[in-house]
């Protein structure tokens, strides 16, 4: 029996191709900007730069854990080994061509990383995990093509804005104004951390991508971009999933040839 090869995502449109690409752990995200480790820590707001990680248990090496075959199979993440507390990063994605969308980021996290617990809502995408593991993943998700400074945002709470119209600079609304567009520099700066606590100095997260560039990179379908129903293989796949669930819910033997 050959090993299972994941198909990742159906569809032939650019948006479907982007979904597959972002989910595929063999594909490296294109780096578009840099954020220092110190600035990342500041904008996440969980600890001060240079401060030691808070722990909720001793390092695993020092603990005598009961024998468990799963422990032999699964290697703990760095944060788990060290006993880090559970912390989070949370993203909000504008409906106006943000590179990512909550479901797709979550599927990508399942494929690419370990030890994280993502959740999907329409206006936010929480990702929980051990603190240093969260920091590592957050850095990649902010520095690369799956983030846009104007259309993607870090928000611990008061998240709404993903479906609102854009401001005069093309920025997504944030009720507590954690970030602003620095016109002189042409970059977006965080002036508050993801929970809205003011920062002692701004953290730059780079220039917003031009809209044409966003359209190339986004996973989103839109009526003014790529129409969802124009991607016939994807539409057919959704119909198939629905039909199989409908026909086989309490009657799995009733469906043949899947």
């Amino acid at each position: 029996m050959s090993a299972y090869v994941s198909q990742l995502y159906p569809g032939t449109s650019r948006s479907s191709i982007n979904r597959r690409k972002y989910m595929d752990p063999k594909t490296k995200y294109e780096k578009l900007r840099s954020i220092s480790d110190e600035d990342l820590v500041r904008v996440l707001g969980h600890r001060k730069p240079g401060e030691a990680y808070k722990t909720v248990h001793p390092p695993l090496e020092e603990m005598k854990e009961p024998e468990d075959p799963i422990r032999r199979i699964v290697e703990p993440t760095s944060g788990t080994k060290a006993g880090d507390r559970i912390r989070f990063v949370q993203f909000t994605d504008s409906v106006y061509f943000s590179p990512m969308a909550p479901y797709v980021r979550t599927w990508a996290i399942y494929r690419r990383y370990r030890g994280l617990d993502p959740g999907v809502l329409s206006g936010r995408n929480p990702i929980e995990g051990r603190e240093r593991d969260v920091e590592k993943v957050a850095k990649e998700l902010i520095e690369t093509e799956v983030f846009d400074p104007a259309r993607t945002a870090l928000r611990g709470y008061t998240v709404h804005g993903h479906a609102l119209r854009l401001d005069e600079n093309g920025m997504m609304f944030d009720a507590i104004r954690r970030y602003k567009f620095n016109k002189a520099k042409g970059v977006v700066e965080y002036v508050k951390d993801q929970l809205g606590v003011p920062l002692d100095k701004p953290v730059e997260v780079g220039k917003p991508l031009p809209e044409e560039e966003l359209k190339k990179r986004t996973v989103q379908f839109r009526v003014d971009h790529i129409k969802f129903i124009s991607d016939k293989p994807l539409l057919g796949w959704v119909h198939r999933i629905f039909e199989l669930r409908s026909r086989s819910g309490f009657n799995p033997e009733g469906v043949k040839g899947i």
Partner: peptide, 13 residues
């Protein structure tokens, strides 16, 4: 269809 179209849906998906 909505979930795949928008890559998001309602509360916890």
């Amino acid at each position: 269809l909505h979930k795949e179209w928008m890559g998001r849906l309602g509360f916890y998906g």
